[in-house]
Each structure stands twice: as structure tokens, then as C-alpha cells.
Amino acid sequence: MWILMLRRRMGPLLSLAFVLLLALSVGSPASVGNPEDYAADESERTANENIVFDDYRGKGCVDDSGFVYKLGERFYPGHSNCPCVCTEDGPVCDQPECPRLHPKCTKVEHNGCCPECKEVKNYCEYRGKTYKILEEFKPSPCEWCRCEPNNEVHCVVSDCAVPECVNPVYEPEQCCPICKNGPNCFAGTTIIPAGIEVKVDDCTICRCHSGDWWKPAQCLRRECLNGQSLS
């Protein structure tokens, strides 16, 4: 009986204590920041606000390496090989008319304001072969060629005369055909030499036209009896 009465009197007090503990746990943060951290952040922000960047506009020029030049001073900004003058509006660089590079230039240097050709191809290429400047050569029996100073090959093809025979031949390493047996012409199907009368059979004598080898031979047929000439 006594215990039951004690529980009834202590019940409201226990409930009130539980509510107070719950309120304290919710209202207070789990961890409190270090005051020194806040001081460090504040000092860093203040230092950043106090940084002053130099402004050279209207006072000088700065190259790619950070060097400062006075107004009127000549310098090389780095992105250009041509000299520049520092002005209030910034660097003003020279823009010279550079000489045209050789079309056969194989090595170009950019050390100066203008590009400079340091090596020019001093040979010619023709049909897979190389030749020196002014070198003469014959790629075929009928061609005569030379490597010109402009690295181009100039060739001349031989103009062959018309052979004075009906059976010309081509010899190795010779461009034009030749008549190995001298001038001749056709007498029917027979080839006869030019300049003389030739008896092609017992009754016929032929002779080539003088200078007109391509024409058939002039032939004179005599009267014959049983294959024998009567004259």
C-alpha cells in the first residue's frame, strides 16, 4: 500500500525530468567548433581582400616572362620574333614585308623577325632518280635531259630523219633507226639496192627511184622466148 502511494506521488516528477533531458539534447549541438578555426578563416579572407595586383596599363608593358618595360622601350614580347615598342595602348610590333621563301626550301628557321630559308634542295628528281644541278643525262636513247638550277628537268626528244630504206633496224642504245644495207626499195616483193639496175628475173630489170625510196622500183620488162631475152 505504501509503495503504491509513493509511485503515484513520484510519477509526475519523473515525467517532468524526462522532458527536460530531451529538450537539452535537442537544443544543444553535437559538437562545438574550435574558436581558433574561425579566427584562421577570418584572417585568410582579410589577407585576400588586401592583395593589390599591379596595373601597368598606360604605364608600361609586360612580356610573357613577366618583365616590365617602360613606355617607348623596344622589346620582344615572346609571342613574336619581331621587335615591339611599348605604348600606352600596349606593345606595337614591327610588321615587315618578309622576302618570299624559295619554293624548294627544305629547312626554315624562325630565329629572326622574318623566316629564313637555310637549305634548298639542290638536286632534281626524274623517274625515281636524282640528278645534280646542271647534270646532263639520257633516260632513253631518244631523250636528252638536264637538271636545271630551278630543280626542274628539261628534256629534248630527238627528231629522227626518215630512213632511206624499206627495212630499217633499231640498234641498242641508238635512238633512230638505221639502214644497215644502205638505201633500197621494193621491186614487187623483192628488195633491191638503190642506185643500180637489178635483174629480178630473166626478162625484168628494175631500178629504184632516185631519192624516192618509198616508191616501187621502175621496172623494164624485155621480150623473152622460153625465158631467154631476145635483145
Rank of each mutant, 00 (worst) to 15 (best):
165 C>T: 14
67 F>I: 12
177 P>D: 11
181 N>K: 07
24 L>W: 14
131 Y>K: 14
109 E>P: 04
200 V>F: 00
14 L>N: 11
193 P>V: 13
135 E>H: 01
131 Y>S: 14
159 D>G: 09
103 P>Q: 01
212 D>N: 12
183 P>I: 05
147 C>Q: 10
68 V>S: 06
14 L>W: 08
7 R>N: 04
152 E>P: 09
128 G>P: 14
134 L>F: 04
175 C>H: 08
57 R>W: 10
154 H>G: 05
131 Y>E: 08
20 L>P: 06
94 D>T: 02
74 R>F: 09
164 E>G: 07
111 N>T: 13
71 L>F: 02
146 R>M: 12
192 I>Q: 02
148 E>V: 09
105 C>P: 14
188 G>R: 00
166 V>T: 02
210 S>P: 07
13 L>F: 15
214 W>I: 10
53 F>M: 07
5 M>L: 06
112 G>K: 03
38 Y>E: 04
187 A>K: 08
33 G>T: 04
146 R>I: 06
79 H>E: 12
178 I>V: 13
221 R>G: 15
143 E>T: 02
89 D>W: 14
94 D>R: 03
177 P>E: 06
4 L>Y: 07
25 S>E: 10
229 S>E: 11
77 P>S: 09
18 F>Y: 11
159 D>E: 07
199 K>E: 03
34 N>R: 08
79 H>N: 04
72 G>Y: 06
113 C>N: 03
17 A>Q: 14
166 V>W: 04
22 L>H: 06
18 F>G: 14
128 G>D: 11
138 K>D: 13
35 P>R: 03
166 V>N: 02
207 R>W: 13
155 C>L: 11
41 D>A: 00
224 C>L: 02
210 S>L: 13
96 P>C: 01
202 D>F: 01
22 L>R: 03
166 V>A: 09
230 L>S: 08
190 T>V: 14
68 V>I: 15
110 H>N: 03
211 G>L: 09
133 I>H: 11
142 C>L: 15
148 E>Y: 08
97 E>S: 02
39 A>F: 00
128 G>E: 15
111 N>F: 15
158 S>R: 09
